[in-house]
Nucleic acid binder design. Structure first.
Lengths: 149, 149
DNA sequence: GCAAACACTTGACTCGTTCAAGAAAACGAG
DNA sequence: CTCGTTTTCTTGAACGAGTCAAGTGTTTGC
């Protein structure tokens, strides 16, 4: 967890103006990985009570474009943000409760990064999403199945 | 491209009632891979002029749950549907125009299907999305860059 | 054919996100 | 430090994909 000063430096380093909302948004994304916009707005309002939701949307866009945060959006989910950028990591999404966890790619350094047939596209990223059940939902599902036995 | 009779059989086989909207939706998804709901509604109305959008939404859901079609939704896109199901194929999405192409996984049979650290999840699917520029947009981008030289 | 179950129509509505216009804040130049 | 320009924030409205709900119509097993 970085300090306010460090967040300000990150913004400057990305050629972004330093504003209270932006610092608070950057901080919130670091503190709450995979949070959706609504949660981030709540968190930001802890620091800056009356920020408009629009300011948060704008900040998130600016931070995403600058590469300071990453936007993820599994199918059927609203947009979520995380501060872990610049590495090759992927996500595991729970089909039941929507919880997201990080996962490094099994085969290491950009393995499934190349499609066998790229259809003429110039590919710059391979995004992997694992779908399944989180530990809690696995347990819950098991006990409800057990009732049938 | 299958016949109407075959689509009806597919529905029966999936324990779904055979209705005109469903046959038309199934046919439309086969005819227009990666089409969004709006396009499918238009296509379906070629066969059944006054279908409600709700009937198409309902049909798509039923077909998806029955495994006759697959729903895909790259980040920032609306839902899209395809009839190619039951194989391990992935998608290449153009960042510029949104076009989607199919791609088989490079390493063959479910290779990057296992995360190195599954965080305790029971994973049942690994979805890969390749991002880049389609041939057309690559060309367009190149010529606009050329103007700067 | 009949009845029960299921699907479709119609129309309203939700909710995440974006648009637009004006007020406020950040920051480089002087 | 102050100014002026540029960018960002506030406010409030709007959009669009998708869902909900009540009632009518169709399909299908018997």
């Amino acid at each position: 967890m970085a300090t306010t000063v460090e967040y300000r430096q990150m913004l400057r380093g990305a050629a972004l103006r330093v504003t209270r909302p932006r610092v608070a948004v950057l901080s919130a994304v670091h503190a709450h990985p995979h949070a959706d916009t609504e949660s981030i707005i709540s968190a930001v309002r802890g620091d800056v009570p009356n920020v408009s939701h629009q300011a948060v949307y704008d900040s998130l866009r600016a931070l995403t474009e600058a590469g300071l945060v990453r936007r993820i959006q599994p199918a059927g989910s609203v947009a979520r943000y995380e501060a872990r950028v610049g590495d090759n990591h992927h996500h595991i999404v729970c089909r039941s409760c929507g919880t997201i966890a990080d996962a490094d790619c099994a085969t290491g350094e950009a393995p499934c990064m190349t499609a066998s047939d790229d259809a003429g596209f110039s590919i710059d990223e391979a995004e992997v999403t694992y779908w399944g059940l989180c530990p809690d939902c696995t347990t819950a599902h098991r006990s409800s199945s057990a009732n049938l036995a």
